[in-house]
């Protein structure tokens, strides 16, 4: 059987809220090392990779590898019934056709159980190489969210250019154009507000803002978003979930015809 208890149930709520508009349904893969998901959006432009480590759970048991297909909208409906401070336990029997979500309030005076029907999902699993990237930018998650939101009011795509000291986000649209530059800033007294740039080579790539806006729904999960870029490769936008794992998004670049 599979059973996993997450004391901070809110994390699971936030993860599902972050991906449910990008992905309709997906297989959640459980094995002894943890709980993970890999899925492409319906247009096959982006890829979501979630991994929650077994040791990030308060209790974790997975007797055999299982892949549980779920409709994200249904999962979201159920998780919305959990309070933000509830612990969430997921349970499923081997070869079962449902997964049970149990919500426990902090004082355990309220216990609720919701069963979600599992579904068979035929999904293509991609092999993601562990790339060295030309540039890595770690910036406050809320700042990244604001940048992609603001630029979306002007244009549909963003050119992200990283140099040694700064990252520049630029867009062009019918009404004009916009550029936002963030300088490296390693303020030791305010680590949550730091912007750090690690660069092997200057890089400049163009991406659809619609997807970056969607990725930014993961903002509540982490203080920072980490952007990793290499010439002509998909951008990796990572949100580290402290002590539990990470939620990563890959987005294929736009190329000039």
């Amino acid at each position: 059987m599979f059973e996993a208890r997450l004391a901070q149930g809110a994390l699971l709520k936030k993860v599902v809220e972050a991906i449910k508009d990008l992905i309709e349904d997906a297989n959640f893969d459980c094995n002894s090392s943890g709980f993970s998901l890999q899925a492409m959006d319906s247009s096959h432009v982006s890829l979501v990779a979630l991994s929650l480590r077994a040791d990030g759970f308060e209790h974790y048991r997975c007797d055999r590898n299982v892949s549980m297909g779920m409709k994200l909208a249904s999962l979201s409906k159920i998780l919305k019934c959990a309070n933000g401070d509830d612990a969430i336990t997921m349970k499923s029997e081997d070869n079962g056709d449902t997964i049970t979500f149990m919500f426990e309030s902090p004082e355990q005076e309220r216990l609720s159980e919701f069963d979600l029907k599992l579904m068979d999902i035929d999904s293509e699993h991609l092999g993601i190489p562990d790339n060295e990237y030309d540039a890595t930018v770690k910036l406050p998650a809320a700042e990244f969210q604001r940048i992609v939101k603001d630029l979306s009011t002007i244009g549909d795509t963003v050119e992200i250019s990283v140099t040694k000291d700064a990252v520049k986000f630029g867009t062009t649209g019918d009404i004009g154009n916009a550029n936002i530059m963030c300088r490296q800033n390693k303020a030791a007294d305010k680590p949550d507000e730091s912007t750090e740039i690690d660069i092997n080579e200057a890089v400049s790539l163009t991406f659809a803002l619609r997807y970056l806006n969607s990725f930014a729904k993961a903002t509540p999960l982490s203080t920072h978003a980490v952007l990793k870029l290499s010439k002509e490769l998909p951008i990796l936008v990572e949100y580290h979930i402290p002590e539990v794992g990470r939620l990563a998004f890959y987005l294929a670049p736009k190329i000039e015809d």
């Binding site: 991609l126 092999g127 190329i255």
Partner: peptide, 14 residues
Amino acid sequence: SSRQRDISSFFGGA
């Protein structure tokens, strides 16, 4: 004009 690449063209099937 620019063209959107497909994500699976980078990572391929595993």
